[in-house]
Amino acid sequence: MSILTIRGLRGGYSEVDILNGIDLDLDDGEILTVAGTNGAGKSTLAKAIVGLLPRSSGTISFMGKDIMPLSAEARMGLGMGYVPQVANVFANLSILENLQVVAGSSRQRIDELFETFPLLAERRRMRAGSLSGGERQQLAFARALVPKPRLMLLDEPTAALSPNKVADSFALIRRLPSLGVSVLIVEQRARQSLAISNRGCILDSGLVALEGDAKTLLADEKAAELYLGNIGASH
């Protein structure tokens, strides 16, 4: 069953369209990687889904409900979680406050998340701006998980991480479906991301160029040549 259905999605930041008519489906419990070259529209697609793109048209249905008329705040209230690529924590608030400010937060839920992320529990009074890249990423994930979302959108979740933290991040993402969370990842490290995904799609110039089973995409010579780079190059 599809949890997210996108049809004919167009949009951009100014008058020029970056998304040129995207059709995409994400099934319940699935991990979907969205890959593509720089400027293909990957992050713009994530922003359009969560309602942060200034201008967009087409249809986006989330759990069967048309969310295009809804604000970003209302979309989150329906069960979406979003981790932006940069500025993904409230830098001037403490770790605890980062979790407390999220709509629907409760002491019990924060305790649950501190069990999942024990490092954050130890440092709960620290200012988020003083955390390392990996710690910030954990906090960003925890913040997005506070309202128990059904869908998580992750924009380049490994971009700011040191190589030894990248595997940890992908391991965490792989666990999300077991918590009842479907995942859409926008990722430059396409091979690693596809390796933990059920399906993948590759954007080119704001359109879906290739789409299919993740393993098939990884084995596809055309995809490898044009979009995924040489094996190992993205590691």
Binding site: G51, L52, S71, P84, F90
Partner: peptide
């Protein structure tokens, strides 16, 4: 706390469900 969050990062506040 929500005021400080909005001041810190308005976009992130929106996708955290904070009603501006």
């Amino acid at each position: 706390r929500q005021m400080r969050a909005v001041a810190d990062n308005p976009s992130l506040a929106r996708v955290s469900g904070i009603r501006s």
